[in-house]
């Protein structure tokens, strides 16, 4: 049995504006999304900001009612059987909110243990184990307001695991963490997967999805645009070479001109401080460089390199080029 099944899930948000003449505005956040996640699988939902990742997770965690389609967790419908779904899932949303900052880490865990009906004896044993696992042992009696961002995020993970759920939803768990904190958290996620938990991880960090996930669904503008293993997704761009050109102050017109070249498959621009880096996907390899340079005539250019495409390139190609 699949741990998670999602069938043609939709979510439309309606908002109204105006006092007398009220205008109703509809925003489609998730459109016809379908996928299945096997038990014990670490599945990534990858997409840019506003792609519909969090909305999807909210629907799967019973916090948002879909406007269309169905979804099940361990065979239970997330709307009709919401009460039965909740004890079987754990979830965290990225960011620092969602904890009681004026309580200690330990009191936060104790309170949530009672909300999840974790037996007091079990909680007494499990809480220290989880604190150890997330590296908060020795700091548990301090108030959460004194924790670093990474510590709070790790406390979130401990909270989500209190009732030993079968399915975990991690919505951008490394968002805003420093590189060391993010690496530690990824190790924790790996450990959870080895404990045979089914995990749905959302992220917009490619390397994170690549390093952790067995399969990845790329979501863009509410729709799934690709679903495969990281290796297979990379294969989509393996016939191409990426030419990276450092430059200063490229205009949209110039990007459009590069895009229009017959040997260019895709173009994306990345901002790096005052510089920009133009990523050009082309089957021509280094031979494309002279023509590209000619088309960038007049701009101050920096380093130019060619490299093999990565998952990020596959992702950029899927979600559209010029988004940073």
């Amino acid at each position: 049995m699949d741990a998670i099944t999602v069938n043609h899930l939709n979510r439309v948000f309606k908002s109204t504006d105006g006092i007398i003449k009220r205008k109703v505005k509809e925003v489609v956040a998730v459109e016809d999304v379908s996928f299945e996640i096997r038990q014990g699988e670490l599945f990534g939902l990858l997409g840019p900001n506003g792609a519909g990742k969090t909305t999807s997770v909210k629907m799967l965690t019973t916090l948002l009612i879909p406007t269309g389609g169905t979804a099940t967790i361990m065979g239970l419908d997330v709307v009709k059987d919401a009460a039965k779904v909740r004890p079987r899932i754990g979830f965290i949303f990225g960011g620092e909110r969602g904890l009681y900052w004026r309580l200690s880490g330990l009191d936060n865990l104790r309170y949530f243990a009672s909300l999840y009906y974790v037996d007091e004896k079990v909680a007494k044993k499990r809480i220290p184990e989880l604190l150890e696992m997330v590296g908060l042992k020795g700091r548990e009696r301090e108030k959460v307001e004194g924790y670093s961002r990474g510590m709070r995020q790790r406390l979130h993970i401990a909270r989500a695991l209190l009732h030993d759920p079968e399915v975990l939803f991690l919505d951008e768990p490394t968002m805003g963490l420093d590189p060391v904190g993010a690496r530690e958290l990824r190790t924790t996620v790996k450990n959870m997967q080895s404990a045979n938990k089914t995990i749905l991880l959302t992220t917009h960090y490619m390397f994170e999805a690549d390093a952790l996930c067995q399969r990845i669904a790329v979501i863009n503008k509410g729709k799934i645009v690709a679903l495969d293993t990281p290796e297979k997704l990379k294969e989509n761009v393996q016939d191409l070479t990426v030419v990276e050109i450092e430059l200063y102050g490229i205009s949209q017109d110039r990007i459009a001109r590069i895009k229009a070249l017959d040997f260019v498959v895709d173009v994306s621009v990345e901002d790096r401080d005052q510089r920009q880096v133009l990523h050009v996907h082309t089957p021509k390899g280094p031979e494309a460089i002279p023509v590209l340079v000619e088309n960038l005539n007049g701009l101050r250019l920096g380093r130019i390199i060619t490299r093999e495409p990565t998952l990020e390139d596959a992702y950029v190609r899927l979600v559209g080029g010029t988004e940073n």
Binding site: T61, T62, L63, Y100, W101, Y117
Partner: peptide
Amino acid sequence: WSGTLPYLFGSPANRWAM
């Protein structure tokens, strides 16, 4: 305000008691 509402409503806790 503390952002804990989704976590409370995502829990199986009895709403009356809570």
